[in-house]
Each structure stands twice: as C-alpha cells, then as structure tokens.
Simulated scan of single mutants.
Amino acid sequence: MRFDLADLQLFLCVVDAGSITQGAARANLALASASERLRNIETDAGVALLTRHSRGVLTTEAGEALAHHARLILRQQDLLKVELKDFSTGARGTLHLYANTAALTEFLPQRLAPWLASRPQLYLDLKERTSTEIVKTITAGLAQAGIVSDAVDANGLELQPVAKDHLVLIVPAGHRFEQHRTLRLTDLLGESFVGLAYGNALQDHINEQANAVGGTLTLRIRMKTFEGLCEMVAHGIGVGIVPQGIAHRYQRKLGYHTLALAEDWARRQLCLCFREWKTLTPPMQSLLTHLGGRHQT
C-alpha cells in the first residue's frame, strides 16, 4: 500500500462528512478528482473501504480500521510539526555557547534563567574559554557565537557590547598599595598573587597580559572560586585581579581594598561575538536577542 498523507486526509474528510461530495469540498478537491483518488486508495488496499448508497457513504470494517490508523498517523504528523517548530524557534534542542570567565560567573546566570525557564525542552551547553580562543573558534566555523571581552582582536567578527566587565585589583587591608587610586600591571610583577585554578580562562588572560609586558605573575596559590580567591587576599596571602562585580560582592564581608587598573585590557566590556547575524540559527538569534543583541541591517 502506498497511501500518502493527502490520501489519508481525504479519506477522513469523506468518512467524517458521510459523503464523497462534502468530503471532497472539505479537502479542497474537485469531486471527480476525489472520487478517482478514493478508487485508487481502495485498489491499493485490495479491499472495499466504503459502501456507497443514495444518501452518501458508510465505512466497511476495513474502512473503520483505515480511519482509525489514519487518525493516529495524522495526529503524529501534527506532533512532529510542533516538535520541529520548537527546534526552529529555539524551544527544543541543544545550543552551544562559548563564554569567558566573567560572562559565565557574572553576566549569564541571572539573564539565562528566565529564557531557559520558558523553554523546558531546550538544553544549553556552556563552554568556558578565553576571549582569544572564542574568536578563533568562531572564525574557524566551529561555533556560532560567544561572549568575549572587547579587548580581544575580533579578527573581523561582529562584536555587540552588552555589559561592562572592568577588572580590578584587590589587596588586603594595610597593604602598601591601598592608598593608590590606580596601578599598572608592571607595578605588580613583584607581588605574590592569589590566582584562579589551572585552565581558568580569566587567569590565562591575566597571565597573557603579564607576559605581554615582559613579566610573569608569582602565583602563591590558585583557588577554584572567586570567593575563595577573595578570602585568601583578605587574609594577606597575596593580591588578586577579579571582575569589578565580584570585588564589590565580597568587599564588605571580607574588608579588602579595591583599586583600578590603568590598562585598557582591564577596562573591558562584555560583547556578543559572531560572524554575521543572518548566518545564526533562529534559536541562537533568539538567545542573543534576549542577551541584548540586535540585528543590524
């Protein structure tokens, strides 16, 4: 049997109407065309499906079986359409988004929560990378989009600022630097630092900046969390560099001092990064729009 969905839809229209004429009208077919298709359906089935009489048609036992299964098949088609629409609009499936450390810890959590909550069938795979690595990944076509610092060389990609992300120095109370307003990284190369764990994208970025000015950071200890880093600084273990929002969050509790860093790389903005808006999938466009992105024509 080679029934297509249009055949099944026509058969149900006729069955529900009890008339080939009315069924053809419901299916938007001419009567002659509908009658021919019904004959072909019965030929393919190898059994009579309808009993024709002066007042219309009735289903045979075989016709009842076909009608039952036709309704199941068409219902499944409707469910499939809804599911595919969910994928196309970003309500279902898996999105992959790359982000630097500051975006993962400060920017994304409160902004992603309501968007994901309204899409229970959607999964989001967040990957932490340095801004430089994210740009390289998008340039190579291995990712659609990411969130990076505007201090990075975007290599021709689109950058759309969505939040401030200044980095600041924190020092323990009584430290010789606490009376300064601003400092440069070169002023700090002789200091002991409290850093973040190996592989942390932000710590890698800070280390790169130290290398760029001809030095290295002396990391006395590495911590897995910003809170742990701030605790260590407050107890005089060393100084640290963290996002401004993190510094403010724990400053009152721990009593360390916060100082500005004078370099441009520390006065950052978080930016959405992608190649071209039109090349993004609809789900990714929906996510970036929610995060503050915009389609520029």
Rank of each mutant, 00 (worst) to 15 (best):
L261I: 15
G215N: 01
L259T: 03
V242E: 10
M232Q: 12
G228F: 00
V242F: 02
G215W: 00
H257G: 04
A262L: 06
A247L: 07
G238L: 06
I246K: 02
I241S: 10
E227V: 08
R220N: 14
F226H: 13
L229T: 13
G228I: 01
A262N: 11
R249A: 10
H248Y: 10
G228A: 11
Q251I: 03
A262R: 11
K224L: 09
E231L: 14
G236F: 15
T218G: 00
T218I: 02
I221Y: 05
G215M: 02
V239G: 12
Q251A: 09
R222D: 07
I241A: 10
K224E: 14
L219K: 08
G236M: 10
R222N: 08
F226Q: 09
A247V: 05
T258I: 05
V242A: 09
G240D: 08
V233D: 13
A260L: 13
V233M: 08
L219H: 08
M223L: 06
V233I: 14
L229Q: 13
K253H: 02
V239S: 14
P243T: 05
R249G: 01
K224G: 12
A247S: 11
L229S: 08
Q244W: 10
G240E: 11
L261H: 05
G240V: 09
G240N: 10
E227W: 01
Y250V: 10
L259G: 06
Q251L: 01
L219Y: 07
M223Y: 01
L259R: 05
Y256M: 07
H248I: 07
F226M: 12
